[in-house]
Nucleic acid binder design. Structure first.
Length: 944
RNA sequence: GCGGGGGUGCCCGAGCUGGUCAAAGGGGGCGGACUCAAGAUCCGCUGGCGUAGGCCUGCGUGGGUUCGAAGCCCACCCCCCGCACCA
């Protein structure tokens, strides 16, 4: 199988059948799939999306479209650099994966320390995999995102976004390595921990030493702060921040230098020393004690916290432990049915033993109060000058109060916000603990811009989504997206045109590159230099803006070439469909939508997005730790390309995860092999077949063509493969059985016709296999370019299909009875058909039902002469209710003679049952012996 | 918390515009054919009861709508995924 695949891949390449050029006489279809980031070879998981795109591309090609399916490689970003560093450092885990999972030779691994070598090596590796799995790509258009030609395009895009006001400057907190001074994302940390950045509110409690900035996530409880906790065993720094003298832990003093410029270190003081002083609550104005507690972590925020025993389990617990519970607890938040001192009550009730218990209680209190808590009247607790403001707080929910208190504190200069790593400690790969750095003058794409959002929403409303459920995801993401940093200080990529120290980050330089495919091969063909690809040049190619004479003379590119490129762009754009995995919905695909909406006119907006789920291996998620990552090329060697294509795309529908299992892949290989053998043996069938069987088979094939076309249009590969691989197989067997039962040889000519239709249906899924069969059948064309089969819906086909189904149901019923036959071995099945009159009643019943009528109407129409007949009519009515729609059509459309229909199938029935089958009219039934009645389509069956 | 997707028989997994649904298709198990034998392949059975195509129970839990619910509505429980400057 693999050698067949190689053979046809070479033939395709030789004939250049996937190189697509503009052709005004044909409808075009432009499809893309999210290009790969080459930091590893492809594994099975990558394969699914690309094959999905390819199957659909091949389908559309067979439907007569001029299909463009291009590919590029995404070099932009930091992970490749980080990985190359790790290789250079001899990172054991990474090298182990390269060596033992991806089977990369040792002499190559050592070279991977060079990031560019790594990218190129994996690019080539991925490209090989793509070719080996049979993707029908036009490789002339390949590029990488660090090609200078591509960079010129990105420069144009960013200038465009800048012009429209969609790029803004702002400050922005990031995870930061305090030693090497670089931003730290998930790929740069030990254990791939994403540094989560959150906000603490500092509340300024005055003291004789200066301000004690208590850090809290719950500023709304400040009214109940009756003390300040410090850790007596650590050293605190005296600093100046915002011109104010403050006390914070030494670590905090260090960390805050990454967030503020105006910090001075004035000295230090022992924590135990601090407890000799008193502090003043800035909101209540009350003097409160500074107390010692070892639970205060100097590494979190400022290392100073306020004590609110009513609402913080730690605070109450330590108050009690220090025998200070005589202090008056002040309550601020009321929870319906749970009192107003939740922390105190829970500590008393559950009696926590250690910090873990207290931590759990804290989370519990936080959750309950956050969701259900209401503010009490706090105006009586505050300084006289604040009373009026806080009167309105009564009844506020906790989140509302939190926001208001925070705003109040900041406005009055009584507090401020700082950032902290919430899931600390997170360590940089270099070993240092990550801190928060505020980057100033960071560049953002302003996805929060209301006009831009509106455009994106408009694009979404006209877009087709597969599967349709994902539309909701896009709508939600569009609402939720805000400013997004679009440049980093390091990594591969294109510098921002107006501020070159910033590199445009990877999710921002990959939003409209599909447009670049349309002309990338022309840049190469005409050897255009990056310096020629100016802003004006791109403006003309992409938007038709500007004076072509001027552009031609300024860039030195001939007018013909510029025009040709513009025309080619216009031929292929808009993009017809984009494929990707579902993980890209909240990021790449949403940015793709936003940027198209921003840059291009509405008629060039992309038309459809198709996303697929992940690939499981033997029912489990593939992961490094489970070591169950199967390199794609390895799978191709083991199972052959066509089998992998089917196993990756056709066992689940688009949205859900596919389970790649060895046994399923093998069974696909097996069934393809069986088909192959069957086709080899086709010449031995030289009979005429039986008439009914021939008609039935033709009908069944038509129906498969119709359903497959419908399913392919919806990218429902699972149903299609089910029909063409498995149902079709059983139809062939049934056909041969039907002929045999009738004493006839199967019709070879018909079988050949049927196989020719079938192999075309299979071609998008198993193109190599299909190509081979197609040529075995004597054709010299490429099946990849053949026309997709068509069929007409016909009532005659339906008739044959339903009659055969009816036969099978009689067989099934007979079999059931035979299984319960107790008088030895059954020797004959006798079928007694209901009176023809009753069939008319059934038809009447169906008619009445389809007009929304009832049993009553049927009775009125039929006017049964006695009770027995009335009973039968009732049963017929019930039968009619349960018939499926096709059967109803059949009954209404044909004057059915049930006896004739049955006789068409008696030979088949007795063949299947292994004993003779005879058909009689019900009048021949000896009612004294068998208490049975015959209804239309439900004949009486007697086994003897 | 917010948003999305789910919970089906021994297992995996379809069905979800209400009626041929005791519920496709696999897998596993049991029995049979073929074979010296094993494997592969093919055939039958695989919720319970039943000496004739039937009855009963049943698709997360509890209600409801309906002549009729795996499917529709409500409430609850549980599981998975995403939540940003990162590809």
């Amino acid at each position: 199988m693999t050698s067949i695949a190689e053979k046809w891949q070479k033939e395709w390449e030789k004939a250049k059948i996937f190189e697509a050029n503009p052709d005004r006489t044909r409808n075009k279809f432009f499809t893309t799939v999210a290009f790969p980031y080459p930091n590893s070879p492809f594994h099975l998981g990558h394969g699914r999306t690309y094959v999905t795109c390819d199957i659909y591309a091949r389908y559309m090609r067979m439907k007569g479209y001029n299909v463009l399916f291009p590919m590029g490689f995404h070099y932009t970003g930091t992970p490749i650099i980080a990985m190359a560093d790790d290789v250079a450092k001899g990172d054991k885990e990474l090298i182990d994966i390269f060596k033992n999972i991806y089977e990369i030779p040792d002499n190559v691994i050592s070279k991977l320390a060079d990031p560019l070598f790594m990218a190129n090596y994996f690019r080539d590796e991925i490209k090989k995999a793509m070719k080996e799995i049979g993707l029908s790509i036009d490789w002339r258009r390949e590029f990488t995102t660090i090609d200078p030609e591509f960079s010129s395009f990105i420069v144009w895009q960013f200038n465009k976004l800048q012009e429209k006001g969609y790029i803004v400057r702002d400050t922005h907190p990031v995870g930061w390595c305090p030693v090497h001074h670089i931003p730290v994302g998930m790929h740069d940390t030990k254990g791939d921990m994403e540094p989560e950045i959150g906000e603490f509110v500092l509340i300024y409690f005055n003291s004789d030493l200066g301000i004690l900035p208590a850090a809290t996530l719950r500023p709304e409880t400040v009214f109940g702060a009756i003390g300040i906790w410090v850790n007596p065993d650590v050293t605190y720094s005296i600093i100046e921040l915002d011109g104010k003298k403050m006390i914070v832990s030494e670590r905090a003093a260090f960390k805050l230098t990454f967030q503020f410029d105006n910090i001075k270190n004035l000295g230090s003081i022992k924590g135990s020393e601090l407890t000799k002083y008193k502090a003043v609550n800035p909101i209540t104005g009350k003097e409160i004690p500074i107390m010692a507690a070892d639970f205060v972590d100097p590494n979190v925020a400022t290392g100073i916290v306020m004590s609110v025993p009513a609402h913080a389990p730690f605070d109450y617990y330590y108050l009690k432990k220090n025998k200070q519970q005589d202090m008056q607890i002040v309550s601020v938040i009321q929870v319906e049915g749970q009192g107003d001192t939740l922390a105190k009550d829970l500590v008393e009730k559950t009696n926590p033993k250690n910090k873990d218990d207290l931590q759990k209680l804290t989370e519990q209190v936080y959750r309950i109060e956050y969701n259900k808590g209401k503010m009490k009247d706090v105006s009586s607790l505050v300084k006289p000058e604040f009373v009026n403001y806080f009167k309105s707080f009564i009844g506020l929910s906790v989140p509302e109060a939190r926001q208001k208190v925070t705003e109040f504190l900041i406005e009055k200069g009584l507090g401020r916000k700082i950032y902290e790593i919430m899931n600390r400690p997170v360590y940089c790969r270099c070993g240092n603990e990550v801190v928060v750095k505020i980057l100033k003058d960071q560049w953002f794409l302003d996805y929060g811009n209301p006009q831009w959002k509106a455009l994106a929403k408009k694009l979404i409303s006209n877009m087709k989504f597969i599967p349709p459920e994902i539309r909701k995801d896009f709508e939600f993401v569009t609402d939720w997206l805000q400013k997004r940093a679009c440049a980093r200080t390091r990594g591969l990529g294109t510098p921002l045109p107006w501020d070159k120290k910033w590199i445009i980050e990877s999710l921002s330089d990959s939003t409209i590159y599909m447009a670049y495919y349309t002309i990338s091969h022309k840049i190469r063909q005409y050897q255009l230099k990056p310096s020629q690809l100016t802003y004006d040049f791109w403006n003309y190619i992409m938007l038709g803006i500007g004076d072509i004479d001027k552009i031609s003379s300024e860039t030195g590119i001939s007018k013909e070439i510029i025009r040709e490129m513009r025309n080619e762009f216009l031929y292929w754009y808009p993009l017809d469909i984009r494929h990707s995995g579902k993980d890209l919905i909240p990021n790449h695909l949403s940015f793709f939508i936003f940027n198209h909406a921003a840059i291009f006119p509405e008629e060039l907006w992309p038309k459809a997005i198709a996303v697929n789920g992940f690939v499981l291996y033997e029912g489990k998620k593939m992961s490094k730790s489970l070591r169950n990552i199967i390199p794609l090329r390895k799978a191709l060697r083991i199972y052959s390309p066509d089998v992998v294509r089917i196993a990756l795309t056709s066992t689940a529908d688009m949205g859900s995860d596919v389970n790649f299992s060895d046994s399923y892949a093998k069974s696909v290989g097996e069934i393809l092999r069986r088909y192959y053998e069957f086709i080899k043996e086709l010449p031995k069938y030289d009979g005429e077949g039986s008439e009914f069987a021939n008609n039935w088979l033709k009908a069944q094939v038509s129906s498969i063509v119709l359903s497959s076309t419908k399913n392919m249009d919806n990218i429902d590969f699972r149903s299609t493969i089910n029909d063409i691989l498995y149902s079709f197989d059983s139809y062939l067997r049934e056909y041969i059985d039907m002929c045999k039962a009738d004493g006839k040889e199967p019709n070879g000519k018909l079988l050949r016709e049927v196989i020719e239709t079938w192999i075309k249906l299979l071609a998008p899924f198993a193109p190599h296999f299909a190509e081979e069969i197609w040529h075995e059948l004597g054709h010299t064309t490429f099946i990849s370019l053949e026309k997709w089969p068509t069929a007409e819906e016909s009532s005659e086909d339906l008739y044959y299909i339903l009659i055969h189904e009816y036969h099978k149901r009689i067989i099934e019923d007979s079999q059931k009875i035979i299984n319960y036959y107790y008088k030895g071995k059954p020797s004959i099945v006798k079928i007694y058909v209901a009176e023809q009159e009753l069939m008319k009643v059934l038809r009447e019943a169906v008619q009445i039902l389809s007009n929304g009528g009832t049993l009553k109407q049927l009775m009125e129409k039929e006017r049964p002469s006695d009770k027995k007949l009335a009973n039968i009519i009732r049963k017929i009515y019930e039968l009619a209710v349960e018939l499926d729609d096709n059967m109803k059509k059949l009954i209404l459309g044909y004057n059915i003679n049930e006896r004739e229909i049955l006789e068409l199938g008696t030979k088949y029935m007795s063949y299947k049952l292994g004993i003779p089958v005879e058909v009689y009219d019900v009048s021949k039934l000896d009612k004294s012996k068998y208490n049975k009645e015959a209804l239309p389509l439900k004949p009486a069956i007697i086994v003897e």
